[in-house]
């Protein structure tokens, strides 16, 4: 595994988040009925940061939830042998809400499909939108993001790693090559 290139540094990452927050507010005309649901693990931290940005911009609090999709995956989303199930924490109702799903990287789209399945079990939102920090292409399902931090074309033998202060000590996005 070799680190090939740094795509985003801390400053750029956070600026992208601020821009996404603006775009969310623009599209949804404010914070009414808005909620953010992050996909575990990093999606949750990004969702919390977005809520922080929104608070800075509009002065309003937006509810943030955490969604674990381990129980909704299909075979192809299995990255490792061990499925580790974390808790889903959505303490608010999502009926008639505008839900913005938040994830770090959009790739094949299967994680998002699983997240949609999970959300539907929780209620009937008015709309579900998708915000991702990085879109790396290679979709295998018809899924698209409404809000994108950066589009990064990648090869299939590469991985995009999003590192956050909360989990990895610093903010950055790098491309890693899987070749030995």
């Amino acid at each position: 595994m070799k680190e090939k290139a740094k795509i985003l540094d801390a400053e750029t990452l956070n600026r992208s988040l601020m821009r996404i927050a603006h775009e969310i507010l623009e599209k949804n005309k404010g914070t009414a009925e808005l909620c953010l649901i992050g996909i575990r693990n990093r999606g949750v931290y990004l969702a919390q940061r977005l809520a922080g940005c929104i608070k800075k911009i509009e002065g309003q609090d937006v509810p943030v939830g955490a969604l674990d999709i381990t129980l909704y995956r299909d075979d192809l989303t299995m990255i490792s042998q061990q499925p580790v199930v974390h808790k889903t924490e959505i303490s608010f109702g999502i009926d008639d809400k505008f839900v913005v799903l938040v994830d770090d990287v959009l790739y094949t789209g299967r994680t998002i499909r699983a997240a949609l399945d999970a959300l539907i079990d929780f209620g009937r939102p008015k709309a579900i939108q998708l915000a991702v920090l990085v879109d790396r292409g290679h979709r295998e399902l018809p899924v698209r993001a409404d809000f994108v931090g950066k589009n990064i074309p990648t090869a299939k033998n590469e991985t995009v790693e999003v590192r956050l202060k909360e989990t990895d000590g610093q903010d950055e996005v790098v491309i890693v090559s899987k070749d030995e």
Binding site: L71, Y72, H86, F122
Partner: peptide, 19 residues
């Protein structure tokens, strides 16, 4: 600890996951 995550499923309205 895995059971903790499953406990939450039983508190939902739709008490089902496709696992």
């Amino acid at each position: 600890s895995t059971a903790e995550s499953f406990k939450e499923v039983s508190s939902r309205e739709i008490k089902k996951v496709p696992a």
